[in-house]
């Protein structure tokens, strides 16, 4: 299962070990872990809640992974995204890919994150000293995804 949406935390080492287990073709693993920061848009963040669109989320992530596999020679790819209530320093998302060489692995990992940021139906709500607020989408995220257009 290349895509998981879950409340539970994940372990980077064991996820990567599982992803490349038994595959001696793998010469490169690239992994990205996104974390909850204690500061956003100038305000302290004490807690974050992640909402998603069950059903569509999984489909969207699978489509992004399929697109990455079509663009680069990957052996495997994994996306784990957490939902529910999280605290600063908690892990939010893991993207890991395996390939023969680093070029494909780095590019595919970044591509998957850029597309996830703009296409996967997740929404963050953060708690600050001024109250709870929905996080606004960043224009820079659209720009990052647009780099991969072709």
């Amino acid at each position: 299962m290349p895509v998981r949406v879950q409340q539970e935390d994940f372990d980077l080492s064991s996820e990567v070990a599982q992803l490349r287990a038994g595959d001696a073709r793998v010469g490169a693993v690239a992994a990205f872990v996104g974390l909850v920061r204690d500061m956003n848009e100038g305000a302290g963040v004490s807690e974050m809640a992640l909402e998603h669109y069950p059903g569509m989320t999984e489909k969207a992530l699978e489509a992004i992974v399929a697109e990455a596999r079509g663009r680069w020679d990957l052996f495997d790819a994994l996306v784990v995204h957490r939902v529910g209530t999280l605290q600063p320093q908690d892990q939010i998302v893991l993207v890991a890919v395996t390939s023969a060489h680093r070029g494909e692995a780095f590019a595919a990992c970044e591509f998957i994150m850029d597309y996830l940021k703009t296409r996967a139906p997740f929404w963050k709500r953060e708690v600050t000293p001024a109250g709870a607020r929905w996080v606004d989408a960043r224009e820079s995220d659209e720009g990052a995804a647009a780099r991969w257009a072709r």
Binding site: K117, T118, K124, A137
Partner: peptide, 25 residues
Amino acid sequence: QEMARASDPVLDGDEVAFFPPVTGG
């Protein structure tokens, strides 16, 4: 459960979702 445009058709039995720009990751 697929991203759509305002001009896309809506048919009987469809599931249509409205939401703000996504902010995951």
